[in-house]
């Protein structure tokens, strides 16, 4: 069985990952070589192929850094820096994570409350649902710079809240859709059964609709947490923030330091992976406890 699992799941993934790395290295050589060749020409030297490859792997400002360079940069800015340092990616990751979690909590709360309102009130459903869909077609990034500039003017200080609002905006919709589906998951017969018990609205909500919605909720939460992270980073990109992974990308761009951008992007990817994994773990534990796991 474990052999099957290796063959069926792990091996293909590893192969694709290896192929991506190979492509990446190839692209790095190709994209960085023009600079190498230009340098050599200026110096009046001709380079062998191995010399070119060697140089493309070790430029300080490459067009496309090789994966091991990014890894080295990350190592340098995490393990070798104090966590409180302005140059530590852990520090910046924490800033982004805080905004992500705040936005995730806010977005989830809004999504769930709206879903309950929509399931229980036809007026709410008909008035809100179309606008919720439209809200997702609006590119939130258009709002981001303004939210960041305007909120301090009405007395809300700090960068956490504006970022959290953008996060929440991206994250509430999948939760809303999943919860509406989940709260409507009980069959007619199950609802009728509650009626024969003369259960109150609150009772059938707590004992039937809410538990039925849990699997749907978790599926949405996985999408929601990833969306919240995207929101937090988008909130940091255009606004002159100096802290957070998005800010690292911004500063890396301003100072022409691609390595820093790639390191921050990679950290964001790792953070996304961890967050999705944690929610997935919570999902498995909860569903198992509720006896709903497959």
């Amino acid at each position: 069985m474990t052999g099957d699992w290796m063959r069926e799941k792990v091996l293909p993934v590893l192969t694709v990952v290896a192929a991506i790395f190979a492509l990446w290295y190839g692209a790095a050589i190709w994209m960085n070589s023009s600079w190498t060749l230009a340098q050599a020409e200026r110096a009046g030297k001709t380079l062998t192929f191995t010399e070119i490859v060697k140089d493309t792997m070790s430029q300080s400002r490459p067009k496309l850094p090789a994966p091991h360079q990014i890894a080295a940069e990350i190592w340098k800015s995490t393990v070798q820096k104090k966590i409180t340092s302005k140059r530590s990616l852990i520090f910046h990751g924490w800033i982004t994570l805080r905004a992500t979690l705040a936005g995730f909590a806010l977005g989830t709360a809004i999504g769930i409350l709206m879903a309950i309102a929509i399931v229980y009130s036809r007026t709410m459903e008909l008035s809100l649902m179309p606008w919720a869909v439209i809200s997702q077609t609006i590119p939130i990034v258009a709002l981001a710079p303004m939210i960041v500039v305007v909120l301090p003017k009405i007395g809300i200080e700090g960068r956490l809240i504006p970022k959290a609002i953008i996060s929440a905006y991206l994250c509430y919709f999948p939760v809303l859709v999943g919860m509406v589906k989940g709260l409507r998951a009980p069959h007619r017969e199950q609802l009728d059964l509650m009626k024969t018990y003369n259960a109150s609205g609150l009772q059938s909500f707590l004992k039937l609709r809410l538990p039925s919605s849990v699997p749907y909720l978790f599926t949405s939460l996985k999408i929601g947490i990833a969306a919240a992270l995207v929101g937090a980073i988008v909130g940091e990109l255009p606004t002159g923030a100096v802290r957070g992974l998005g800010a690292r990308i911004l500063i890396g761009d301003q100072f022409g330091n691609p390595m820093q951008i790639w390191a921050a992007l990679t950290c964001a990817a790792i953070l996304a992976g961890l967050l999705i994994m944690i929610v997935g773990l919570l999902q498995r534990i909860t569903l198992k406890r509720m006896g709903m796991a497959e």
Partner: peptide
């Protein structure tokens, strides 16, 4: 699920 939008400065550079 990743914040691919962060590639923006790199693409502008390229």
């Amino acid at each position: 699920a990743l914040p691919i939008v962060g590639l923006a400065p790199i693409m502008v550079n390229w």
